[in-house]
Amino acid sequence: MTKKPLIYLLASVVIVVVALLLMSRPLFTTEGHTVAKKIGEPSVKSLTSAAASDTAATDTKGNSPEAEMKSLAELVVEYGDLQLIDAHNHDASGFTYASMMKTWKQDSVDRIVLFGDISEPSAIGTDEIAWNAYQEEPDKFIPFFSGINLLDESGLQTVKDNLEKGYFGIGEIAAASTNSPVLANVAWKTKDPMDGILPKTYKLCAEYKTPVLLHIDPPTGEPVAKLEEALEDNRDTTFIFAHINAYNSPDHVEYLLKKHPNLYADFFAGFTASNPESFNQLDDFVSIIKQFPDRFLLSTDSGYGLPGGEEKAIEGMYRLIDALGDRHVAQQVAGGNLERLIRMQPATKTQLEALRKVNDLHGIKKDLSSLTKEEAGKLLSDKETDQ
């Protein structure tokens, strides 16, 4: 056999060296992490599976894997003794509330702030449905109303009549909405929280000590600037920012609450816990809730946008309660804060006059001057039931 020329020998050495270098370098990167392929290392498929396994320890919402998470039933057993109030519920629409009674009982949802449609003529009818539900079960339902023409002075009379009647709050009303497909075309929405009759409505809310629940989207920019103007101009009025955590940052929520003591946060826990469009986790809000424990309210928003609907939203409320790790704060947020907003409302002239007529008819003399709206409403409901 003849010897190879020297040049061929050198070429062979170079090829071997290059091959060894290629075998030792990364094949590709993924999302900034090097994925190497060497003899004895797992394949790309194996690495992907391992990453998925690690990710299972916390899902995309920062929750534990389903197998390790407490079930809703377990959470209800653990926290069912707390007074849980759903502070934002649309189930007066289509009489949906009737089909939810069994679920509420099963999941220990004690009371529901009930209304239906938002800022359009049809809401007048759903307001009446909410009122009738309250008449039937005053210990279960807390009626709010939304059927107000916010663009006409006549709407102020609707506000006054309903507050006198005994409704406990205004809302949800569309004070500003650009992004919501549901509210894109409602007839009575305002362009911002200082538009239409809203400034005068806030004055009536202060007079009656009644909260107003505002839908505001987007939760930044001009709509929120106008909300801040309303908060500053009406410091005796209690404002509730509906689903404040939806498409909003914890830092921004903290900023608003710190700056405005008359602002309450309606926290739609199910959105943060289960909606894939949420970019936050429940834990992101825990420190803020503990910083302002007397100004957070829990709600389901009737499960809007959630896979699993309203029951998934109820589960979200319980998961937030569990994440708080403090039963005193949990009770405030679960129901205590909302109860306080309801019980601070005095009985109206209309309620007191109706009770005096009933008492006179039965020859009863009783001082009614210190009654709250809630107490007067229950007495009137009992009288109607007796008749």
Rank of each mutant, 00 (worst) to 15 (best):
G40L: 12
H33I: 15
A52G: 09
S53M: 08
T48Y: 06
N63T: 02
A52K: 13
A52Q: 14
D59I: 00
A50F: 11
E66I: 11
E41H: 13
A51M: 08
D59Q: 03
T48F: 05
A51E: 12
K45Y: 02
S53I: 07
G32C: 06
K37M: 07
I39W: 10
V44R: 03
S49D: 14
G40C: 03
S46P: 01
S43V: 00
S53P: 01
A67Y: 06
S53E: 12
N63F: 03
A51H: 05
H33Q: 14
K38W: 08
A67P: 00
D59V: 02
A67W: 09
S64F: 11
L47V: 09
S49P: 00
I39K: 09
H33D: 13
K37R: 11
H33W: 06
S43R: 00
T48W: 05
K61W: 01
G40I: 02
S49Q: 11
K37D: 07
G62K: 03
S71E: 02
A57L: 12
A56G: 01
V44E: 08
E41S: 14
K37V: 08
K37F: 06
T48M: 08
A52I: 10
A36Q: 07
G62A: 05
G62C: 04
P42A: 00
S71D: 03
S46H: 03
D54P: 01
G62R: 02
T58Q: 14
V44Y: 04
E68C: 01
A56Q: 08
T34W: 12
A51G: 09
S49E: 15
T58I: 05
A56M: 06
E68H: 07
A36V: 08
E31W: 10
P65C: 06
S46N: 04
A51P: 00
D59G: 05
A57F: 06
P65K: 10
K38F: 09
I39Y: 10
S49C: 00
T48S: 06
T60H: 10
K38N: 07
A56E: 11
P65E: 07
E68T: 02
A52E: 14
A57N: 12
M69K: 12
E68Y: 09
S49I: 10
S43F: 01
S71M: 03
S46F: 00
A50M: 10
T55P: 01
E66G: 02
A52R: 14
A52M: 11
V35F: 08
